[in-house]
Nucleic acid binder design. Structure first.
Length: 495
RNA sequence: GGGCCCGUAGCUCAGCCAGGUAGAGCGGCGGGCUUUUAACCCGUAGGUCCCGGGUUCAAAUCCCGGCGGGCCCGCCA
């Protein structure tokens, strides 16, 4: 068959027969990053660059081609008159779209004013057996291919690359910010005998050495608090959480969180930290604190400058739904649950009912600008400390931006007896069929029994923050390799 | 979990409603062209029409089932 791969395999073989290595170990001309070459180009200067050929325009004795190096494009030209028949026909016969090459030449501007490298010598660095599926920057692949073969999307789609650059830069700036505040970065186990710290279904795994069923963590919380117990006053971790739940535009089963814990702080301090973190990181990564986010057909401007709006959950109900959630009877609450067909696994509980109603009625439309929702019902927050002045409530806040929950934070519960009581309540609900109820963690209780200082904790969803930063409406966009169902491997050209 | 839409050449898609020999652009290959940039011009090859069943003289097209994907809804961040 004359398929592309077969034709290119033949070229590879011919190169080897002619003693040209199609995959040399190093470039002959030590390359300068194209990013640096284009920053302050000097006409006539000799440069050596390297990159992937993602465009070729042949004009007989003159060939223009584009190479992309680390996401930056530059045009090169090969002239038969300048390089001679040998190199010119080598390029024509052996070099294809997708190949990675080392170019040595001089800078000039074409008639159309484009900076171009006039090739004097060229070395093949890696022969590509497949050409890129689309031209660089010109067409977007089918969504399935974009996510399934993400490297092709990132190779050919500068926007996709830009989104991930923002992600990686965001993580970098979050680290710097946290370090600057005196937090130290730590690591805690991903494989755990008991999961906890959030309401979610876990992934199970099996540890051969212990002959035991373990879990992938659903949050970072309980181990980070153990470090606070151990005497580390300001810790944070950036890492993956795993939740065995649905995949959609806001959820990927593995996602990245930053969690921080600070001794002697409460949730008011954590609110300040959160505002400062988000605005500072936005300013450093995006050079602005105003982002645009597509909602429906509109691009909505979102300001990430502090202070963020604050509503207690009761105020939010009054303001956005016209409901006096504290004043109404349980019957009325149940009526609302029924009206919006919300079920409560584990039986009716007013607090958790209110949170479910909140998610259903208020979340999406009203919480576009950054908004702290504070003081959640205690029964929905088993790891948070009861409110200092409002009975039945916990000192907890969630941060919403663009209708998405981005952060969750508490004044941490450090009373081991109360924590044990809350765990028992969770266990009871688990027994009644709530798969997301917390399992009882005796080891964690014992740790608290040794004494944990009053502590403020924060969990921040990195993926969603990057969605806000980049105006992405799908979490898949901001994850290098989002979860997608595997397909049977089909590669007819492979042997 | 429920609903809607999609799956055809390497890529993007038309053809499907109204069944009758599989199409375009880009890309590939061959030729031309020394300042183009989604280069251009001429020629040419390239298909498990996602898979499996059914209806029919005849299915890419109609029906049923499955697989994969996207979006919306419900739920967890």
């Amino acid at each position: 068959m004359g398929s592309e791969v077969e034709l290119r395999r033949a070229i590879r073989r011919r190169l080897i027969e002619e003693s040209v290595n199609p995959y040399p170990h190093k470039p002959k001309y030590s390359p300068t990053p194209v990013r640096e070459v284009v920053r302050s180009p000097q006409v006539g200067a000799t440069v050596a660059i390297a990159g992937k050929i993602l465009g070729i325009r042949r004009h007989g004795g003159l060939i223009f081609f584009d190479i992309v190096d680390d996401g930056v494009r530059i045009q090169c030209s090969v002239s038969r008159g300048e390089v001679g028949e040998g190199l010119f026909s080598f390029f024509e016969n052996y070099v294809d779209l997708g190949d990675i090459v080392n170019v040595y030449g001089t800078l000039y501007y074409t008639r159309k004013g484009e900076l171009t490298v006039a090739v004097k010598d060229l070395q093949l660095l890696a022969k590509a057996l497949r050409s890129p599926p689309v031209k660089w920057g010109h067409r977007v692949l089918d969504p399935e291919v974009r996510y399934r073969k993400r490297y092709l999307d990132l190779m050919t789609n500068p926007h996709a690359r830009r989104v991930l650059e923002v992600r990686f830069r965001t993580i970098e700036e979050i680290r710097k910010f946290m370090w600057s505040k005196g937090f130290i970065e730590v690591e805690t186990p991903i494989l755990q005998p008991i999961y906890g710290g959030a309401a979610a279904r876990p992934f199970k795994t099996y540890v051969w050495a212990l002959d035991a069923e373990w879990y992938l963590r659903i949050s970072l919380e309980l181990y980070l608090k153990r470090l606070v117990v151990a005497g580390f006053n300001k810790v944070f971790e950036i890492g993956k959480n795993f939740r065995n739940e649905d995949i959609d535009v806001e959820h990927n089963p593995e996602f990245t969180m930053m969690e921080s814990y600070e001794a002697y702080a409460d949730y008011n301090d954590v609110m300040k930290l959160t505002e400062e973190l988000i605005s500072t990181v936005a300013e450093r990564v995006l050079s602005t604190t105003v982002v645009e986010y597509p909602l429906g057909k509109e691009l909505v401007k979102i300001s990430l400058s502090p202070p963020f709006r604050r509503f207690t959950i009761a105020e939010a109900f009054r303001e956005f739904a016209g409901i006096d959630i504290e004043g109404i009877t349980d019957d009325k609450v149940k009526e609302l649950l029924a009206r919006y067909s919300i079920s409560l696994p584990g039986g009716y509980d007013r607090g958790r009912a209110i949170v479910k109603l909140f998610d259903r009625l208020i979340g999406r439309e009203h919480l576009i600008q950054p908004t702290f929702i504070l003081d959640f019902p205690q029964s929905s927050s088993p790891l948070a400390k009861p409110h200092r002045s409002k009975t039945g409530y916990a000192e907890r806040f969630e941060l919403y931006i663009a209708g998405m929950e981005l952060a969750n934070a508490y004044t941490e519960l450090n009373d081991p007896e109360l924590q044990a009581e809350y765990f028992r309540e969770e266990e009871a609900r688990r027994a009644m069929g709530d798969l997301e109820a917390h399992p009882f963690d005796w080891d964690f209780i014992e740790a608290l029994e040794y004494g944990m200082p009053p502590t403020g904790g924060l969990g921040l969803g990195i993926d969603r923050l990057v969605m806000v930063f980049t105006g992405s409406t799908s979490i898949k966009e901001v994850i290098p390799f989002p979860m997608i169902k595997p397909r049977e491997f089909q590669n007819q050209d492979s042997k």
